[in-house]
Design a protein around this nucleic acid. Sequence first.
DNA 1: CAGCAGGGCATCGTATACGATTTCAGATAC
DNA 2: GTATCTGAAATCGTATACGATGCCCTGCTG
Lengths: 234, 234
Amino acid sequence: MARETMTAASPTAQSKSQRAYRWIKERIVGHEFSPGYRLVLGTLAGELDMSVVPVREAIRQLEAEGLVTFERNVGARVSMVDDSAYRYSMAALGILEATATALSARHLTAGDIRRARSVNDRMIETLDHFDPRSFTALNQEFHSILSSRCANPRVLELVGAEWGRLGHLRDSTFSFVPGRAQESVREHEQILALIEQGAPLGEIEHAARRHRSATLDAYLAHEHPDEAFDPAGI
Amino acid sequence: MARETMTAASPTAQSKSQRAYRWIKERIVGHEFSPGYRLVLGTLAGELDMSVVPVREAIRQLEAEGLVTFERNVGARVSMVDDSAYRYSMAALGILEATATALSARHLTAGDIRRARSVNDRMIETLDHFDPRSFTALNQEFHSILSSRCANPRVLELVGAEWGRLGHLRDSTFSFVPGRAQESVREHEQILALIEQGAPLGEIEHAARRHRSATLDAYLAHEHPDEAFDPAGI
DNA sequence: CAGCAGGGCATCGTATACGATTTCAGATAC
DNA sequence: GTATCTGAAATCGTATACGATGCCCTGCTG
């Protein structure tokens, strides 16, 4: 018989730990809990209407993911992603995503390309009434489509994890350097062209990498005008 | 005053969760708990002489690391790294490590190079009385030295994490394809030469990548002679 | 007035307890 | 002989409880 007949609603749906995990993560990426925010077990448990045990577990998971830092006998707080950590993570993401894009290129369908281009078109449209937030969202969607067919799922996983890590502060880049947005969409078109014409994978990867690191460089140039920083200058 | 004056021994040293974590991980990477092994909370707690709560936490951490898989209401077991997952992870590791090596190349000291070469020499020596286990250990040490000065610590972290994931079954490669070992040490010398002569980072990265994927290809060719697989053929 | 000792409060770490769920063995019906 | 049902054992998920630890504030002392 149906093993979950009467539980269709939610009772068995998921464990409390998982609910806590999602709930907290939601708040973190939604900036409701900003970096440095103190995550008190008892309080969270109270709000979620459960005991502290599942909350502890959830926080441990978030810690493993890097969203939360933990200190014994002191407690957890939302990770302070200091500037350098942000850069490094961004650079790593760029490398991984470029590789994923290259590994994906040969498997992209015409439909994929079309969708990617349409996303990029929407990005171009929004350039007038520029909104960093939605622009970044579209940007992520664009790259996500390009790497979606990556032949190596592990690489995709790593890309996803890194996106998650940066999630709660990534809208910053484009808001700081609006001018970068225009170059960005142009480079997107170039990458699409390379993929369509079946360029060597090395070339595609290189282009994607340059694209990424250019965005990062723009951010850095704005934040630290005097500092030379070449995280993936290869 | 000294905050741990009288506890120098161990009492405050580390939490039970951490002890459990280390203990279990030790067994997993030491093959004492082989893939598929069932990790029962109560049993582990008994052996570690603690309650199940810390053990649960430890297992969650290991799950986040990918060493353990968890099924709700069923329990945890050591990850079954099936063949394809192994390949993918290996390929991802190759990509990351190659990048790390390139990002590290310019910062390697003469001493680093010397040590790396000495490790490689030891590998050559052991070719006669070949022992896959120690050969693999040396291999790891070699690559670890080369990427140790990586300018991007996040990339290094990712490399380390991936090594950990593969830890409990990585000795396989060289035991399956002993012939590969000889090529391998030759390629090591080539990479060292590239670094010494200050070759372009792109070239170094490419060489490191090819080196890695060649090892993987050798493994695959042995395991799946008929299958074409180009995880990072860029 | 400055500095240190002491104590109380907040919070964490772990143990124990119990209900919920899964799994497996044995029995029964066809 | 096979398939299905039933019940008990094993194990998990979560709540509650209590000791341990760190932090802050008060009050004493020089």
